[in-house]
């Protein structure tokens, strides 16, 4: 476990837990895309199938449980909680996310490390995570308001991806045979998606103006 990966996991943890706590505290999910949250819950469900059959470490197991619990809790709050669900911006969060689930599933069937159920599900979760943020970015563009709830969420998610790329570079140079093309390519695609948002986020932060994404 290197520092980049630990920092990446912690940043990822912060992004999800902070979002959950904020939704729980202010009883509102304004600006949050339910589609993205559902995609993330699916990513964790598909990726952590080996939770009880493949023990890596206590840290690994605890983090998987926290990610599963927090992502499904956020989806529950946005769909079922009597107060929070009313603040969900249904008419703007219209990204047809099955248009990205199906191609990811097909791609996972074609490109995987081994053609077994768990490996295909793992590859599916990697591809899906790369594009899961799209509905959220589309919603931010549409509503053009980025209150700190979603701005910080996307920012932390982007930071986690950058840290993971640094982790892969570090592991590539320190561990022989550490080659994971599937994670690397999908991870780079995912990080590029955030680059655009980062650019506007940092400009708005520097000029101390409200973040406006171009239409």
């Amino acid at each position: 476990m290197n520092l980049f990966r630990l920092a990446g996991d912690m940043t990822h943890l912060v992004s999800v837990v902070v979002l959950l706590l904020k939704i729980h505290t202010i009883k509102s999910c304004a600006g949050v895309s339910l589609k993205t949250q559902e995609l993330y819950a699916l990513v964790f469900a598909a990726r952590y199938l080996d939770l009880f059959v493949h023990f890596v470490s206590l840290y690994n197991t605890v983090m998987k449980l926290v990610f599963l619990a927090s992502s499904f809790s956020i989806v529950w709050y946005m769909r079922k909680h009597k107060i929070v669900r009313r603040t969900y911006d249904r008419e703007h969060d219209t990204f047809r996310h099955h248009f990205i689930v199906l191609p990811c599933l097909v791609l996972a069937l074609l490109i995987n490390e081994r053609f077994t159920f768990r490996e295909v599900m793992w590859a599916f979760s990697i591809y899906l995570e790369a594009v899961a943020i799209l509905p959220q970015l589309v919603l931010l563009q549409r509503t053009r308001n980025i209150d700190n709830l979603t701005g910080q969420y996307v920012f932390f998610l982007g930071a986690y991806r950058v840290l993971y790329i640094l982790n892969w570079i570090y592991r590539y140079f320190t561990e022989p045979h550490f080659v994971h093309w599937i994670s690397w390519i999908a991870g780079i695609v995912q990080t590029v998606l955030y680059a655009d948002f980062f650019y506007y986020y940092i400009i708005s932060w520097k000029n101390n103006v409200k973040l406006e994404l171009p239409a």
């Binding site: 493949h54 983090m63 081994r114 550490f178 994971h180």
Partner: peptide, 10 residues
Amino acid sequence: GCLDAPKDEL
């Protein structure tokens, strides 16, 4: 081999 390296990352 490198293909079936354990999935030790989250």
